[in-house]
């Protein structure tokens, strides 16, 4: 990977995580169709992990999660654990995703659903009472559907922004 591309990827990664977090926390203050919002940071982590070198993708997931933890009241590390897991699954599945692009959208749905469920279960284990939320099913389903809708635009955009034409090698660092 040449130096210019490397710096471009770092810049795109940092900027997109900060922008997604800022949008996530401000855009949906009052505009919440079906009383839910897309999981933008989660979507960005999926989009970035598709193309970044494996270890960088994992650290990106961890850092994005840590930022979410620091901007919320949930225990520090809960989102970090969740988004690192998401990045790991994307890293593992991305070769297959690139071979069969029809898998992309269902995978975004499954990953979003799985990640929010994982967060809710871990939150309950660590005393956050997330599963006590009576709107639990809607709160994992609706953001997953929103992410699927947004993914059709976000995934090609991030491929372009990261300067990727071919999928990154799984073990490329």
């Amino acid at each position: 990977m040449n130096t210019a591309l490397k710096y471009r990827r770092i810049a795109v990664t940092v900027f997109s995580i900060i922008a997604a977090t800022a949008l996530q926390t401000t855009l949906f203050v009052r505009f919440r169709p079906f009383d839910a919002a897309p999981a933008l940071v989660l979507l960005v982590v999926i989009a970035l992990a598709r193309h970044l070198p494996a270890e960088f993708a994992l650290f990106t997931g961890f850092a994005a999660g840590l930022l979410e933890d620091l901007l919320s009241q949930s225990p520090l590390g809960l989102w970090a654990l969740t988004l690192t897991t998401v990045a790991y699954f994307v890293v593992r599945a991305r070769d297959r995703m690139e071979e069969d692009s029809a898998l992309l959208i269902p995978l975004v749905f499954v990953l979003t659903l799985g990640a929010i469920t994982l967060f809710a279960v871990l939150g309950t284990i660590f005393g956050e009472k997330t599963l006590a939320d009576a709107g639990f099913v809607r709160k994992i389903l609706v953001p997953s559907i929103y992410n699927v809708v947004l993914a059709s635009a976000a995934l090609p955009f991030f491929s372009w922004a990261l300067g990727v034409r071919q999928p990154a090698n799984l073990y490329q660092t």
């Binding site: 926390t25 949906f28 979410e68 949930s74 989102w79 967060f119 809710a120």
Partner: peptide, 11 residues
Amino acid sequence: QVLAVGVSEFD
């Protein structure tokens, strides 16, 4: 004025 919401639906 409300400036921001929680980062997740459970926040």
